[in-house]
């Protein structure tokens, strides 16, 4: 049984002026045709949608939560169609938009009570489900929601999205703008919810959060690059990957990109990640080449690919022009 079934879904905001597409899906080779996204989410799974801003994550969430009508394709949530059976969907999903959207002028307690009543239930009835999360903000229950800190707002929003015991939970960038400790804590809460059988669809621009999902979809410019478990995606990364460092990092990036044996080179924090187009090329050879160009304290070593490396590689395969920015 799938909690979410999506087939060929698209919603475009086409700008005739610039000829650019935005939203979900992309025009295919044949005219008047749009390639949409297709995927399934199993019941009780944490499914991550991972991609940069503007990739179409929020558009997808808004379609699945019945706030937007798709241009083409079908989507079912909990077995109900998002266009024709939206009333049933609204009864059984929880949605936490990217922007904090509870009533800031009502207190923590009032917000929770309010959202319980609009779903024809009470806080007491489903208290078990939100207990772990709500207990952390309960000391501040008479405080107005607008006066809460970022992390507390997020916990309240999650509590409100859960109070009617939804079978599917949609979390649109829940950790954006949240500190690392709260982020970790938040993912811990999601795992507990998963144990209770709730399906969670979560989007994030942070590649490091991919490993906390059961399966992920990498999204770019409205289309899915790959859908797999995080490990599965990494296992498909076939090329050797080197981390390179020297005393002059910006010159290093230019020099590496200019080298004929280098396929791609991206800056990753304090090192550059390099893939090769020629597998027989060795670390020693690169070392010499860089030393010749005047680099010192050169360090080159083989590393394992992360999700971000996979994303870069996949993104480049789809759109070769997006490389070397």
């Amino acid at each position: 049984m799938y909690a979410i079934q999506v087939e060929g879904l698209s919603k475009n905001y086409h700008s005739a002026k610039s000829g650019k597409y935005a939203g979900l899906g992309k025009p295919s080779a044949s005219p008047d045709q749009v390639d949409g996204v297709t995927f399934d989410v199993h019941q009780g799974e944490i499914f991550g949608i991972i991609g940069p801003d503007g990739a179409g994550k929020t558009t997808l969430f808004r379609i699945l939560t019945t706030l937007l009508v798709p241009d083409s394709g079908t989507a079912k949530v909990d077995g109900y169609d998002v266009v024709t059976e939206l009333k049933d969907i609204r009864q059984r999903v929880g949605y936490m938009p990217g922007k904090f959207s509870l009533y800031q002028d009502m207190t923590v307690e009032e917000n929770l009570n309010f959202f319980a009543t609009v779903f024809n239930t009470t806080v007491e009835e489903n208290y078990e489900l939100v207990k772990d999360i709500y207990q952390q903000i309960e000391p501040f229950k008479t405080r107005r929601a607008g006066k809460l800190s970022g992390g507390m707002k997020q916990k309240l929003a999650l509590s409100c999205a859960l109070i009617h015991k939804p079978s599917v939970l949609f979390l649109d960038e829940p950790t954006t703008g949240v500190d690392p400790v709260s982020r970790k804590e938040f993912w811990g809460m999601l795992r507990k919810l998963k144990e209770q059988g709730i399906t969670i669809l979560v989007s994030t621009p942070y590649m490091d959060e991919a490993f906390l999902c059961d399966r992920i979809a990498l999204i770019q410019d409205g289309i899915f690059l790959q859908i797999d478990s995080p490990q599965g995606i990494i296992d498909q990364f076939a090329q050797t990957l080197w981390a390179v460092r020297s005393n002059n990092m910006s010159k290093l990036l230019r020099d590496l990109r200019a080298h004929p044996a280098v396929d791609t080179c991206f800056a990753f924090g304090d090192v550059h990640h390099v893939t090769l187009s020629n597998d027989s090329y060795t670390i020693a050879e690169l070392h010499d080449y860089l030393a010749q160009l005047g680099h010192s304290t050169i360090e080159v070593h083989v590393i394992k690919a992360g999700i971000e490396d996979c994303y870069m590689q996949l993104a480049r395969r789809v759109d070769p022009h997006s490389n070397n920015h």
Binding site: R90, Q91, P97, L102
Partner: peptide, 13 residues
């Protein structure tokens, strides 16, 4: 503008 209507729109109201 505050986005709260979004949260209400996904409810059965």
């Amino acid at each position: 503008e505050k986005g709260t209507i979004e949260q209400l729109n996904v409810t059965p109201i």
